[in-house]
Simulated assay, not measured.
Amino acid sequence: MTALINNKKLVVLLVFLLCAGCFHEETSTPSPKLMTSPNQKRDNGFSIVAGEKIGIQDQVVQPIHLTPTKAISFVDELHGYGVSSGTLDLQFLKSSDGGMTWRALSRLPQTIMASAISFFDYQTGWLLTSESSDEKSELRLTLDGGQTWEVIAQDLPGLETRGEELFFRFFDRHQGLIAFQSGKDMILLRTQDGGLTWSASSRISMPSEKEGLFTFRSAIEGWFIGPSKKDKEVSILYHMTDGETWQETGRLPSFLAPQAISFTDQQNGFILLHANPQSSEKTWQFLRTFDGGKTWRQHEFPSTFQPLAASLHLSFPTATSGWLLDARDLWQTTDGGLNWRLLTP
C-alpha cells in the first residue's frame, strides 16, 4: 500500500512538472545571447535625495519561539516560509501573520545546508539544499505548502564547488533562475520545466572582479552593486534589462557599503547599506526607489538598529511589506521601510 501511495505521488509530481507551461499563458523567455559590451554607461538622471529618519520598534510584544535562521520567502504581506537549521537536519517553517508567529511543518533529515528557498504561491515552493555527507546540491519541490517535499533534481551544473552567495527564484511555476558570481563572470542557471532540468548560460562578464550584491526581477532583468575599478571605496549600481549586458546607472554614497538589495517590480527597489569600517560614520542607511532606480531616497536608521551584517536576507514581496533576516533577528516593515519592527526577542 505504501509503495502504491508513493507511486501515485510521483505520478502527480511528474504531471505537474511536465505540464508546468499549462499554468501560465506567458511565452517562455528565450535564453540570452552571448555577452557584448559588459560595461555600458547610461545617463538616466540618477540621483540620491535625503529622506526622513527611519523609526525602529525593538521591543517585542509577543516573543516567538520558532523563527527562520537560514532563508525566508514571503508571497504576500501575511504568508511567509522559512528554514531553520538544527544539528543534523533542517526544519521548514510557515507563518500566516506576517512573521509574528511560525509553526514547523516538516523536517529534512541529514540535510544541514540550506542555500535558498523560493515560493511562487501558498502551495508551490522550491528548496535548494546540499546533503551533509557529500555537499552535493539537491532541489526539492513541494505542492502542499511545505508539508511534504520531493527531490526533483540533483548535482545542478556549476554548483559542485560553489561557495559564494547565490540568487535563487522561480518567477512562475516553470521558469526559475539561479545566479552566482564567479570571479570576473556571473553564471546563470535556468530552468523552464519547473526545476527538472537546468541549463547553464554563457558566462556574463561582470563590471568588477570584486564580489558584489545582485538580485533579479525576471529571467533577464537584474541589478548589481559592485565596487568601482578606479575608487575602491565607491559602489556603483548597474542594471541589466536584456539578460546579457550590465549598464551603469549611478554611484552610491562613498562611505556606505551595500549589504542587501531587493526589487519588488520594475519601479520599486530597496538597498540596505552600512558605513565602511574606514569611515567615522557608524550607521545603517536605507535607499528606496519608486521610479525604477532613477531617484533614490536615503534614510538613516537610529543607532539602536544593529543587525548582524555577516548574512542578511532582504525580501519585499510588495512595495510596502518587507522583511529583513540576519543570523539572529527578524525585522518587519509595513510601510516600505520607513518603520521597522523587531519580531524576535
Rank of each mutant, 00 (worst) to 15 (best):
D97I: 00
D326G: 07
L213S: 07
D58P: 05
W126Y: 05
C22E: 04
A116S: 15
I64M: 15
W223N: 03
K210L: 14
S31A: 11
L312R: 02
P157C: 05
P227E: 13
M1C: 09
Y81C: 13
E77M: 14
P63M: 01
S115D: 14
S201C: 04
P207T: 05
T87E: 14
I54R: 01
I204H: 00
L342E: 14
A319M: 12
S182P: 02
K282I: 03
E160F: 09
E52H: 10
A20T: 02
E300H: 11
M100G: 04
S202F: 00
F16D: 07
L66A: 10
T101V: 06
T283R: 11
W246E: 10
V12K: 14
S321F: 06
M206W: 01
F263I: 09
G222E: 02
F214T: 04
H313A: 12
L159M: 13
R288Y: 04
S84Q: 15
R162S: 11
E209R: 15
G222C: 04
L128W: 01
T148V: 14
G51P: 08
W102H: 00
G183W: 01
F167E: 13
G55D: 15
D172R: 05
E165G: 07
G158V: 06
E164F: 03
A104C: 14
L188F: 08
W296F: 03
S311V: 02
E300S: 13
Q298H: 11
D329Q: 15
F305P: 06
D291G: 05
L272K: 02
Y81H: 10
D335P: 07
D43L: 10
E52I: 13
